[in-house]
Amino acid sequence: MNQHPSTDQTLLKMPSLRAVRSFVAAARYESFTRAADTLCVTQAAISRQIRELEEHLGTILFERVGRSVKLTPAGAIFFEAAQLSFLNIAQAAARIRKDYGTHARRTVVVCCSPAFSALWMAHRLPSFFTANPDIDLDLVTTQNFLTLEPGTDPDVFITKMARVRDNYVSVPLFHDRIYPVCTPAYLDEHPEIRSLEGLRDGVLLNLSPYGRSQVAEHVDWSVWLAIHHLDIEDRLLHGAHYFNANDYILLIQMVLGNQGVALGFDHLVSPYLQKGLLVKPVEHELVLEETRHYFAYREDKANDDALNRFRSWFFDQGDLTMATGRTA
C-alpha cells in the first residue's frame, strides 16, 4: 500500500479520539459530571482527558461557571468541528452495521408507477414483509422512468417499457385488459350504462395522456369507444360531464365515490371486483395483445438473495405471465 507522508503527519498530529469524545460530551451537557455519567466513566477521567486535550492544543477549552462549564471561543470552534466529525463517524458506522454487519438487513429498491404502487402493491405487501422480516423495501414511484434523479439505481423496475435501461434483465408479464368499472350502487342508479351507447353518454372519468409520453400506447375513453365502433364526439352536447385527469388513483377514488364510470385496468382493479366494490356495467373489454408489462431487474444482482426473494414473492401473487393478464 502506498503511503502518503502528509497523511501520516496529519494522523500523528491528531489529538486522542478518547479525549475528543470526552470533550464533546462535556461541551454538549456543559458539565463534566453529566459527561462522565453519559460515557460511564468517572468525573476525574473526564477532567484528565480534557486537560490532555488542552495541553495538546495549547489553549483552554472550558471556563468554570458555578457548577457548570462554558466553552471558550477556542472551545466553541473545536466543538463545532468535533461534533460534526463524530456525527459523520456514527452515521457511517450505522450504515456499515446495517449493510455489512452480521445481522445486516437487506433493502430492495423497487421503481414503479404511482398507480401500480397504490392499487397493486399496497394491499399485497404485508404478505411479503411477513415472509421476509429481514428485508426492507424502498419504493420509488414515477411516471417518467427515463429521467429518475441521478444516483437512483433501482434493483427492480415494473414498467411497460421492454428495455428501461442497459444491464437489466426484462421478464415479460401480462397484457393490459381494459374495461369500464363503476360501483354496484352507481349502476343501479344509472341502468342506461348497461349499453355501450348509454355508457358513452354517461358521466365518464377519463385518464388523460399528460405526463405519460413513455407509454407505448394510451387508452382513454375515445380510443376504447372507437375500438367498439362508437365515436366520443357523438356524446350529447348538454349531457353528462366528461372529467379528465392524469391521476389514475384519483379516478378510481372517484369511481368508488359513485361519481361516474372509469376504464379499469384489470391488474389494478380486479381486487375491487372480487370484493364486490366495483362491477362491470358491460362485458366489453379491450386486450392490448401487442404490448406487455415487464419486471426488469439488475443483471449484476441476478444472484442476490434479497432480490430473488422479492422476485419469487412477486410472481407468486398470481399468473403474471399469462397472456390474458389475469392476476390474483
Rank of each mutant, 00 (worst) to 15 (best):
residue 195 S to C: 02
residue 229 H to F: 10
residue 261 V to W: 02
residue 54 E to D: 07
residue 94 A to Y: 06
residue 166 D to I: 08
residue 74 A to C: 06
residue 277 L to C: 01
residue 203 V to P: 01
residue 168 Y to D: 04
residue 37 D to Q: 15
residue 162 A to V: 07
residue 315 F to V: 08
residue 196 L to H: 02
residue 77 I to C: 03
residue 303 N to S: 10
residue 322 M to L: 13
residue 35 A to L: 08
residue 251 L to V: 07
residue 11 L to F: 14
residue 23 F to G: 00
residue 61 L to F: 06
residue 23 F to V: 04
residue 29 Y to C: 11
residue 121 M to W: 09
residue 164 V to Q: 03
residue 293 H to N: 15
residue 235 R to N: 10
residue 227 I to W: 03
residue 122 A to H: 12
residue 129 F to L: 10
residue 163 R to V: 14
residue 98 K to H: 14
residue 29 Y to A: 12
residue 5 P to D: 07
residue 136 D to H: 04
residue 47 S to K: 11
residue 228 H to F: 10
residue 147 T to K: 10
residue 48 R to V: 05
residue 251 L to P: 00
residue 34 R to W: 13
residue 152 T to P: 02
residue 283 E to F: 04
residue 198 G to Y: 06
residue 175 H to V: 05
residue 231 D to S: 12
residue 166 D to L: 10
residue 20 V to R: 02
residue 286 L to S: 05
residue 263 L to G: 04
residue 205 L to H: 00
residue 254 M to Q: 14
residue 113 S to P: 06
residue 46 I to A: 01
residue 58 G to R: 04
residue 107 T to K: 08
residue 46 I to K: 03
residue 241 H to Y: 15
residue 16 S to A: 08
residue 59 T to H: 04
residue 167 N to M: 05
residue 259 Q to I: 02
residue 305 D to L: 13
residue 16 S to P: 00
residue 316 D to L: 06
residue 280 K to F: 00
residue 196 L to F: 01
residue 192 E to M: 03
residue 119 L to V: 07
residue 237 L to T: 12
residue 28 R to F: 14
residue 231 D to V: 05
residue 99 D to A: 12
residue 106 R to P: 00
residue 292 R to C: 10
residue 262 A to W: 08
residue 94 A to L: 13
residue 110 V to I: 15
residue 125 L to C: 02
residue 240 A to Q: 11
residue 3 Q to K: 09
residue 124 R to Y: 05
residue 169 V to A: 09
residue 243 F to A: 05
residue 125 L to I: 08
residue 10 T to A: 12
residue 194 R to Y: 02
residue 12 L to R: 15
residue 109 V to D: 04
residue 209 P to H: 09
residue 99 D to R: 07
residue 86 F to P: 00
residue 40 C to P: 00
residue 93 A to Y: 12
residue 328 A to S: 14
residue 76 A to Q: 13
residue 149 E to D: 15
residue 268 L to M: 13
residue 122 A to L: 12
residue 38 T to A: 14
residue 96 I to H: 10
residue 47 S to E: 10
residue 324 T to N: 14
residue 124 R to W: 03
residue 6 S to N: 11
residue 200 R to F: 03
residue 107 T to H: 03
residue 208 S to P: 07
residue 328 A to R: 12
residue 216 A to F: 11
residue 54 E to K: 00
residue 113 S to G: 13
residue 8 D to E: 15
residue 107 T to Q: 10
residue 102 T to P: 03
residue 44 A to C: 05
residue 114 P to Y: 11
residue 40 C to T: 09
residue 36 A to L: 02
residue 272 Y to K: 01
residue 207 L to K: 08
residue 161 M to D: 07
residue 196 L to I: 10
residue 276 G to Q: 06
residue 254 M to T: 05
residue 228 H to G: 04
residue 211 G to H: 08
residue 13 K to V: 09
residue 122 A to M: 11
residue 40 C to Q: 10
residue 272 Y to C: 04
residue 81 A to E: 14
residue 296 A to I: 02
residue 39 L to D: 05
residue 189 E to G: 00
residue 98 K to S: 15
residue 180 P to A: 11
